[in-house]
Nucleic acid binder design. Structure first.
Lengths: 157, 157
DNA sequence: AGCGCTATTTATAATCG
DNA sequence: TCGATTATAAATAGCGC
């Protein structure tokens, strides 16, 4: 979008990620609302952050919309699938979920290593420069926090 | 929007309403997906037409996201999954495993943030000093790698 | 430290074929 | 009735305060 487009993948910088989250969350909620009004649709939208904060929009009533959804999806399914098939589905979901989480852990750990100056061989000059900038920012933040912490502890004496 | 803006109220003409519904539905689903990827958020989106047709997007799993929502909203709830499958040992293992992995991700991400000078409020002076040392080491490693990379690229010319 | 700005990208209402 | 095209509105990434 503005000032250059961004690739659609996880934003690693926490500050940027949070700012983008706030903005896009607002945009998404607004568009959900507009669609429901314009086209007379029933909409339920749940947004849950990794830390568990929940944002929601429901054009009618969250519970009734969810119930309506469940009714349609389970009425077809639940009686036609056997117990074994259900287990298979759970098994598949479980495997996918675990795979996804492990991948996420891997990515996060790589990023961690880079931030500690390890495993840099795979990085090009451009990436090294970006990394340097991030780490420089980090150190200035840490130092200014040290000053604050020190100041607070003096106040306590 | 284009060619003149429209007021946000029910579109009376059925054809126009349907066309707008299709387009905006697509846009909304896309934006929901982008937000979940960019900002690592768990999203569930239900769109139900007056005729009962359902469109949905779930970044993780519709059921588990809805359950997560219900868990936080309603005060007490003993189990997350329907009782038929509940007594399964497997489910318990699954839930434990996923919980463990999520915790690991959380820890790794916190560490990541600290290395980037974010979320430092919870740290004491001693921890800040340790962190500072780690980041100083990181930056000197990154800088020396930059030199190496630069040297290599010159050799190639 | 969330708001405003603004240059761009994206979404989309109207139109066209 | 449509998909494709356009002209325009809306959303938003990067900044600045």
């Amino acid at each position: 979008m503005p000032r250059g487009k961004i690739p659609i993948k996880r934003i690693e910088d926490p500050t940027t990620r949070h700012v983008t989250f706030c903005k896009r969350r607002g945009g998404l909620l607004k568009k959900a609302c507009e669609l429901s009004v314009l086209c007379d649709a029933e909409i339920a939208l749940l947004i849950i952050t990794p830390r568990g904060r929940i944002y929601e929009y429901a054009s009618n009533n969250m519970k009734s919309t969810i119930d309506k959804y469940k009714k349609q999806t389970t009425s077809v399914r639940s009686n036609t699938y056997s117990r074994e098939e259900m287990d298979d589905q759970f098994m598949q979901f479980y495997q996918q979920e675990v795979k996804k989480l492990r991948k996420q852990i891997y990515t996060s750990q790589i990023s961690n290593e880079h931030l500690q100056g390890e495993g840099l061989d795979s990085l090009g000059m451009k990436e090294l420069k970006q990394l340097e900038t991030r780490v420089e920012k980090a150190i200035s933040r840490i130092r200014s926090k040290k000053v604050t912490a020190n100041f607070s502890s003096h106040l306590q004496l």
